[in-house]
Design a protein around this nucleic acid. Structure first.
Length: 485
RNA sequence: GGCGCGUUCGUCUAGUGGCUUAGGACGCCGCCCUCUCAAGGCGGAGACCACCGGUUCGAAUCCGGUACGCGCUACCA
């Protein structure tokens, strides 16, 4: 079954950010490695120079690390199989491509892109499959030598034999069969000297002793090319597992056009890494029971490729958000304190220093009312600064002719209390209400409005206790001046 | 067009021939709780298991076909 120490790799191309689909691919590779005592390798596939983005590799590594997916081998962490960046392995690909040419399993091609385009147009017009016509396969050795000597640009193509059945044993999908007639004479080495994905990934997977290729379903169709390559080189074929795609709400392949796809975007929005990882793990995998809440280490011990689904999964943000809430509730107050301090530091309240003790009280009162830590600042700014405005709808609904008088009475009552506790505030309010002959709500609602500016939020006594007596008195005064009905 | 893959509530899924009047989660609706907003508790609507045919005493589960969706079809990965 699973070899002693499997080696798997996540092989993104550095195009700028980590796609959430990529995160899931990386995660499944990581989980598989951890579950089976194997190695998780990061390899950078930067063979397309036109799509290179500055700083992308660094960003990729940072984001992977943020998610908790530490690699065992990769850029900056050699395990004896480096380098792990394909652009640093060019000589290797050239050598293996040449080897194939020697054996007539690949050949030089000098066709111009114009000719290829023309060929393709014609084939399309006649309803044929677009495929290279092996035109250059029939060049004589002399012709090839002369053209090469003239420094004509060339590519090296795979020489696919017609009418062979190519079988793929896929761990997730079972046996998949292709006829070699539908496999194009794929370009292996581009005219700029860089390999295409197909050559590079086969050479590297072999050299890096990759045992299991776990990648997205979009690669299934080109797997026959890879099988052919392994066979031509006489190399052992790794096990394949093609993961179902992550989908947009309209079921097309998850793309930028329909929302955020970068892990960095979700991170910036305040999603917890635990939640994102948990959510993405459940998109296409389940342990076979009803459990949905997992931490990364728990996923490590229960994951198996055999239980990965075959069909694509819609990336449902609402569920992600619910997952984030669930993970948030499980965090200790201490963990939340650290997260809150980070948010405060980058907010407009960064010079508004509240004690840890006070922040902790704020966290406890707000925890179950938020989906993101930053919402404490966004939705409960009144803990940091007195309300600048008062919600007009709430004023209309809660502020009556008697409100001002009641708040004044309440203020008078608490003014004399030394270091009032939450209960002291509550008792004071009850007392005022009783004397005035009104319901508690007649004071509670306007008071909440006066100190917070809004109608929702934590229990009133929690709010004013956190604010403290002086601040509460001050805010009542301001409100009495500002709220006019 | 060709090739490949897929198809269980709106979404993520459980289900591997009888335990299923198809279970859970998110979302939605209602009730309870309640100083508000949440959270929580309880309940509800929501899937003729894409369709048709076959195998079988019995099928969401096995087989075949059809439809639909998606992916690939680049000197992109």
């Amino acid at each position: 079954m699973i070899s002693e120490n499997p080696r798997v790799r996540f092989a993104p191309s550095p195009t700028g950010y980590l796609h959430v689909g990529g995160l899931r691919t990386a995660l499944y590779n990581y989980l598989f490695a951890k579950r089976n005592n194997g190695a998780f390798i990061l390899r950078i596939e930067d063979t397309d120079r036109t799509r290179l983005v500055e700083g992308a590799v660094k960003n990729l590594i940072t984001t992977l690390k943020w998610a908790g997916l530490d690699f065992d081998e990769g850029p900056g962490k050699d395990g004896g199989f480096g380098p792990y960046v394909q652009s640093e392995r060019l000589a290797l690909y050239k050598r293996y491509a040449d080897e194939l040419v020697q054996q007539k399993k690949a050949y030089y091609c000098f066709c111009t892109s114009d000719r290829i385009k023309q060929l393709r147009d014609e084939q399309q017009k006649t309803g044929l499959q677009s495929k290279y016509d092996k035109h250059c396969l029939h060049l004589t050795e002399n012709e090839i030598r002369d053209t090469l000597k003239n420094n004509e640009p060339y590519v090296i193509r795979l020489n696919v034999q017609p009418n062979e059945l190519i079988n793929i044993e896929d761990i997730i999908r079972g046996e998949v069969t292709f006829n070699s007639n539908v496999v194009d004479d794929q370009i292996l080495l581009k005219s700029d000297g860089y390999p295409t994905y197909h050559l590079a990934n086969v050479v590297d997977d072999h050299l890096m002793k990759i045992t299991h290729v776990i990648r997205g379903e979009e690669w299934l169709s080109s797997t026959p090319k890879h099988i052919l390559l392994y066979n031509y080189f006489g190399w052992e074929i790794p096990k394949f597992a093609h993961l179902p795609l992550l989908l947009n709400p309209d079921k097309s392949k998850l793309s930028k056009r329909q929302g955020d796809v970068a892990v960095e975007d979700y991170r910036a929005k305040g999603y917890l890494k635990d939640a994102l990882v948990n959510f993405v793990a459940m998109l296409g995998w389940s342990a076979g029971d009803d459990r949905e809440f997992y931490y990364l280490d728990e996923l490590c011990s229960s994951f198996s490729l055999e239980r990965v689904n075959k069909s694509g999964a819609v990336f449902n943000i609402e569920k992600l958000q619910a997952m984030n809430f669930a993970h948030l509730q499980k965090k200790t107050d201490g963990e939340l304190l650290n997260l809150l301090k980070e948010e405060v530091a980058v907010s407009s309240f960064n010079d508004h220093l509240l004690s840890d003790e006070k922040l902790l009280l704020i966290i406890q009162s707000m925890k179950e009312r938020i989906n993101f830590v930053k919402e404490i600042i966004l939705n409960a700014s009144y803990f940091f600064i007195a309300p600048q405005t008062y919600d007009q709808d709430a004023v209309k609904k809660r502020w009556t002719a008697e409100s001002a008088g009641l708040l004044q009475k309440f203020a008078e009552t608490i003014r004399g209390v030394e270091n009032p506790s939450k209960e002291d505030f509550e008792n004071a309010l009850h007392q005022v209400a009783e004397i005035a002959g009104v319901k508690n709500g007649a004071i509670i609602h306007p008071l909440r409005l006066a100190v917070s500016g809004v109608s929702g939020g934590p229990g009133l006594y929690d709010i004013i206790f956190i604010l403290g007596k002086e601040e509460t008195l001050g805010r009542i005064n301001i409100a009495l001046e500002k709220i006019i009905i």
